Structure formats: structure tokens, C-alpha cells
Amino acid sequence: MSQISVKTISGLTRGLHVIEAIAAHQPIGLTALARLLDIDKSAMQRTLATLHESQWIRPAGEAPPRWELSTRCVVVAGQVYNGSSLTARAQPVMTELRDATGESVHLAVAENKHMIVLGVVDGNQMVRTALKVGQVHAPETSASGRVIHAYLTQQERENGSSETHLLLSPEEYQEIRSRGWSVSAGAVQQGSTSLAAAILDVSGSPLGAVVISGPETRVTEDHFDRFGELLRAAADQLGGTH
């Protein structure tokens, strides 16, 4: 990651942390936020007033107010989603995967020691794995994180992990890389199984992962090889050589 050698704005940083905290705990009040982020209550009150004035948050209708995110966040998130070339290219590919398997398919990328869901195509089964854009998965245990880690060095894996004790062994990552897909049970939802393949750029570095998820009673080992081959083909289609 490149570093910009200029002085940062601490108030803006605090505001962004507050937005993230509200997103995770909404609705939440002033005192709880100040305690959660270890910020002085008067500074927190000024930050909340600024975010409210700029229409990023709104009161949840209580006195004293508890805060929640406004629809402005949804609008900005939608612009990011629609503006991503990888997300746009992945949508028809994910739809084809869903049609071929009947299961839910999603696109995930690594960011700040998390796997973030950028795109979803719901399965066409009555009982299916339900996901949403913006959902966060652990890189150490999710299928998407495991397949991304398979293309990194051990140092890069550790640097991108908050729970290094949950990382697989180097031999297990090599096995994932050799076959081209990973598998994880219960990391997305309890009772579900996921398989993932890495989308690589022209240099062989991972851009993200495409994932198939479904109930463990349906996505069984009998399906792993077929689903894995479908995922590899989809990831190749989305990779840097296309």
C-alpha cells in the first residue's frame, strides 16, 4: 500500500471510525459510542452533530437520540458497487454459475484484514445460503479468504490476518493452489458449505474470489470436483488475461 506523506485530519479519521461503529451497532447512543471508541463525550458529540448536519446519520426517534446511518451511505455504496469494473464483469458470470449449480454465488475481495462481499446472485433453491453486499467474512476461515491466501506468501498471510492461529498450514495452502479452489464449512453461515476460486491479475496476484455457497446437506463432497472446475473456469474468465 502506498503512503501519502502529508499530515492527516484527525477529526475526519474520527468521523469515519464513528460511521463504522454506528454501522456495526446501530442504533447506538452518544455514551455507548464514546465508550466503544474511547473518545471524549464532548468530542463525540461534536462528531455526531457534524455527521448529522451532513446527513450521514439520523436519530432513531428516541430521546436522548440513538443514531443510525442514513440512506446517504446506501447511495454511496451503490455508486461504488456500480462503478467497480470487476463487479460489473462478474455479474453475468455469477449468474451462469448460479444457473449451473442452483446455489448462491458471490464475489469477495480482501480489504483491511476482512473479506468483503461485493456482489451476490441468490440461489434458486427454496433453502439457500443468503448473503448481502457488504457482508464481512473472516479471511482465515472463509473459502474466499483461504483461496486468496493460497496465492500469498506466509508473511503476507500473517500481515493480512487478525487471528493468525486460524491460518492453515503452508502445505494446505499449496494444496489449494494446486487444485485451484478452496472449501470451507460453516464460515459464511452455520450449516452451509462454500467453495471458492481466486481471480488473478496478469501477474498472478489475487484480485478477489468467486464463491459458491449452499446448505451442507446439498453441497457435499460429491459435488466438490464439479463445482471446483466451474469456479476455476469462472475465475479464469474474470482474470487479468481476459
Rank of each mutant, 00 (worst) to 15 (best):
S2I: 15
S2K: 13
I4F: 01
S5R: 14
S10E: 12
G11I: 10
I19A: 02
I19E: 03
A23M: 09
A24T: 14
A32H: 00
L36V: 05
L37H: 10
L37Q: 11
D38W: 03
D40L: 13
S42Q: 14
M44V: 15
Q45L: 14
Q45F: 14
R46K: 13
P59G: 05
A60R: 05
P65M: 12
R66Q: 15
R66H: 15
W67C: 13
T71D: 13
C73G: 08
G78L: 09
V80L: 14
S85Q: 11
S85E: 13
R89L: 12
T95G: 11
L97S: 04
R98L: 02
D99G: 03
D99Y: 02
T101D: 05
V105S: 02
A110V: 12
A110R: 10
M115W: 07
G119L: 03
G119H: 07
V120Q: 03
V121K: 01
L131K: 04
G134Y: 04
V136H: 00
H137T: 11
A138E: 12
P139Y: 04
E140M: 08
T141W: 01
T141E: 00
R146P: 10
A150P: 04
Y151P: 09
L152F: 13
Q154S: 15
E158M: 09
G160S: 11
H165F: 04
H165I: 12
H165W: 04
H165R: 01
L166Y: 04
L168N: 02
E171K: 00
E172Q: 08
R177Q: 11
R177L: 06
S178R: 07
S178C: 00
R179C: 06
R179L: 09
W181A: 01
S184N: 05
Q189G: 05
S194L: 05
A196W: 03
I199E: 00
L200K: 00
D201K: 00
I212A: 03
I212L: 06
P215E: 05
E216L: 00
E216N: 02
H223N: 08
H223K: 15
D225R: 06
D225M: 09
R232G: 07
L238E: 11
T241P: 01
